[in-house]
Amino acid sequence: MADPVEKLLETVCNDSRSFCVGEILVRKTSTGGFALSHRDDKATDQLKIFRSAEDAIDIAKHDDAGNYRPLKTAPKLRHGWRLDLETLEDLRRALDYFYPGRLAMFAAWKSDKLQITPLRETLERQSGMYRAAARISDSQINDVVADFCRSNGGCLRTILWKRDAEEVIASTKLPKEKFDPAYDQMMASKPPGSPTPATAPIPATIPLLCQEACNLLIAECRKVMKGE
């Protein structure tokens, strides 16, 4: 039974021989399967080969330096691996381990079913130790979001939420592309002069959407209020 996520993947796979999701490049193989790797490793031959969708759990867990990655959409996916998968179901499962929930959010967004929650609403809803985060000022939000969510070193998601019910932009310090699902956030994550030439053809990209501020950003807002 093809649900919206599978249909979405099917469409993307039918339209192009390769596509990107965050830092991952997905290539269709001649045998009808899929080969996944880090986008930076596109031209690298000496990759460690994995063959199970479940292997994605471990690949995604630590960065190149061995640090745990609590935020899977942070641009710190480790290098040096290739994941060979046979079926679309395996591909779906693996991508869901790399970027948990993101395909489903994209499918819901495409069919107008994704509810977007302003940051202030998320902050107001908190209880316990996170209640303090709600006291953060608008200008502090402007700074924290710019620093924490930036695609270059922070997080590769496209921000859909606004600061508050008045629809104020989440941070004026972020480039407008950060809010554009059609934009490939990896382009912004590359430091100037990086090996990927701006003129290189960009494969189709499934955006990683952020419809509501994550717990880590709320924790960051709390830290600001606690002066940590």
Binding site: D3, P70, K72, P100, A104, A107, K113, Q211, C214, N215
Partner: peptide, 26 residues
């Protein structure tokens, strides 16, 4: 089950994501 998913308070997918994980049509 037709689908089995996980959601976490401190990891992804978040509990907030979970509301949109299941296609209401199926």
């Amino acid at each position: 089950f037709a689908d089995v998913e996980c959601a976490f308070w401190k990891e992804e997918p978040s509990l907030r994501d979970a509301v949109f994980l299941f296609d209401p049509e199926s």
